[in-house]
Design a protein around this nucleic acid. Structure first.
Lengths: 346, 346
DNA sequence: TTTTTTTTGGCAATCGTTTCCCATCACGTT
DNA sequence: AACGTGATGGGAAACGATTGCCAAAAAAAA
């Protein structure tokens, strides 16, 4: 406890009451801006509170009100980009309400996750934000059972379920990226998807196909490569694409990490971006603008998603009933310098 | 509160006591593993506790014991790399003790910072971790005044002060980087420092000078550029270096972000790394291995620093007196692919 | 058997608030 | 003059644990 170690131990509401010559009740009313106190009295108390730098005991208040003021965020691991943007958004709105954000990385470790769960159950949490791409039905079930409000962030595989979640328009992103490349004049566009077991990976691919179809371009299945959203996959699959009899003039990477892999492969083969090869990423994480050249990518509005998630959670906590339980924010194309018309080297 | 919304409201120690046919006191003793309970009784109570899935009220316990189980971490902003590694380390050790980590980004905003401070004072915090490169004497003063244990992470400008802090051997890093380049055969090595107002920027530079001196190479002041630890500076100063009558064959960037700027400039001018120019960074953040080519850099043991900071803080909280108040972990050279002997284009 | 010591176990106060409910008091009404 | 009413203020019981201290019982010592 903050002031406990101080010489004279923590100041209490009773001391304020004494000094103001009123009862504890009255001070409490003033502190909580409740009616039933004459404005003169109110002011007097407020003055003393300010002057004495009194701070409430969170614990005591919490004990009575059954609220902790804490929101727990479970992420998979502390990586760059994705998580960060969301955390930022969450914090933005929590800041305004006075809640504190508790962060925990589960590392996909079942045991860790259980310990975490137990802890937020026994220590108090007002609500939980789940940033776990992979479905964790066990986890969500426990939360539901304990009536602990939560909202899931990101695109999960278990979409049909009955809890609130937030994602973004992945399909649209896939479509837009491809459409953009086509608009630039590309006809042979390679794509390195994420694991196709994931709904969201398939969504990107579907968008890609649709855009091609809309432009009347036949899909060449040889140009479709599956990755695992990691740099290494981007590298390898790019090599594979380059080794094709008729290689693409542009590559659409399933996420920015894979795009970095694409960059690496191209760099290794001395192929210039964007003059000899265009590259589009997905996510728009922190470091995308820092790449050389800056990566053109499909932006997921991470911060916005975080904000929305927090807002929803707060409403849930307030006891509001939400009328929808899945929300999608729209992706957008961020044009930087990794794309150009094909041709120069073609 | 977690279980509050549950049908039957939260289970209390009293109910356990009832069911076990013992007093509240006894149950409490069992829960806290205190002596004075026969082992038979102890077991019986434990069984009931387990069976009923009883969880303690954190608030009540906290009210009595004056502990919150919360550690607050103040960072500047949620960026990639630096912060993340440290958070990871902190969490590693907190996980073992059952503390929860509360994160807050101050964004260098004075008002935000004040609100945060007020909040951790009024709501309880067991201790604070400060990840704020710039000295915030006001902040540290308040913490000291309130006897709230804290440790500062990273290299601050106000080193002579009387609170525990953790950093890394910056000077050594500057020396090692330069020495490495010299070993590779470079004689003209450019350096893009951070703001020289910062002690740590000067430390890097001093290391650079020392290594040059040790190798008997005269320092050419024209090769020393000052940046602001941001990508743009890396870009601009690299251009300046390249425009020198006799440009360097290697560049030592003050941090990895600046190194990314160096990459950008070289990419723009079509200068190949590492064959035509070697680059060394500093920090080894998340995305350094993802660059093309992967960046050779001086590694700050971020995770380790975080661990150490948390450990220290925990000891402080336990009331231990620390015998030292500044600790430095050693930096190390991480060799990747951005350096090569000079000459090819020379 | 009596006395002393050690083990067990429980009473009740306490932590610092919030909140239900009752007591006053000053006024305007009838 | 008696009464109803609204505005203020306070008394005291929670909230759910921890803990100092004492009592009873059991074990050991005399």
């Amino acid at each position: 406890m903050a002031l406990k170690r101080n010489g004279e131990s923590r100041m209490t509401i009773a001391q304020i009451a004494d000094e103001a010559g009123v009862s504890i009740t009255t001070v409490s009313k003033v502190l909580n801006r409740m009616p039933g106190v004459a404005s003169a009295t109110r002011e007097r108390v407020e003055k003393i509170v300010a002057h004495r730098q009194y701070v409430q005991s969170h614990a005591a208040r919490q004990l009575r009100k059954s609220q902790s003021g804490l929101i727990d965020l479970a992420i998979m691991r502390l990586e760059g980009g994705y998580d960060l943007g969301i955390m930022q958004g969450v914090q933005d709105v929590l800041e305004t309400t006075g809640h504190r954000l508790v962060v925990f990385a589960t590392h996909e470790d079942e045991a860790l996750e259980q310990r975490w769960l137990r802890r937020i159950l026994e220590q108090a949490s007002d609500g939980v934000l789940l940033l776990q791409p992979y479905a964790r039905t066990n986890l969500t079930n426990v939360l539901v059972e304990n009536h602990l409000p939560f909202v899931a962030i990101g695109d999960r595989n278990d979409q049909q379920v009955a809890f609130p979640s937030i994602g973004s328009t992945i399909w649209q992103g896939g479509f837009t990226a491809t459409e953009y490349l086509i608009g630039l004049g590309h006809r042979r566009i390679g794509i390195i998807t994420g694991p196709l077991a994931l709904r969201t990976s398939r969504a990107r691919l579907a968008g890609y196909r649709e855009a091609l179809a809309a432009a009347g371009i036949a899909v060449d299945e040889a140009l479709i490569m599956e990755g695992n959203y990691m740099l290494g996959d981007g590298y390898q699959q790019t090599c594979a694409l380059l080794d094709l009899p008729e290689p693409p003039t542009a590559i659409f990477a399933g996420n920015d990490a894979q795009a970095a892999g694409v960059y690496r492969a191209l760099y290794a083969r001395d192929i210039k971006i964007p003059s000899q090869m265009s590259v589009v990423g997905f996510d728009d994480v922190m470091y995308s603008p820092q790449m050389s050249p800056p990566l053109t990518t499909i932006r997921q509005p991470l911060v916005e998603i975080g904000r929305m998630a927090a807002t929803l959670l707060l409403r849930l906590i307030a006891g509001e009933m939400l009328d929808m339980n899945h929300l999608e924010l729209s992706t957008s194309l961020v044009i930087r310098e990794s794309c150009a018309p094909p041709g120069i080297s073609r």
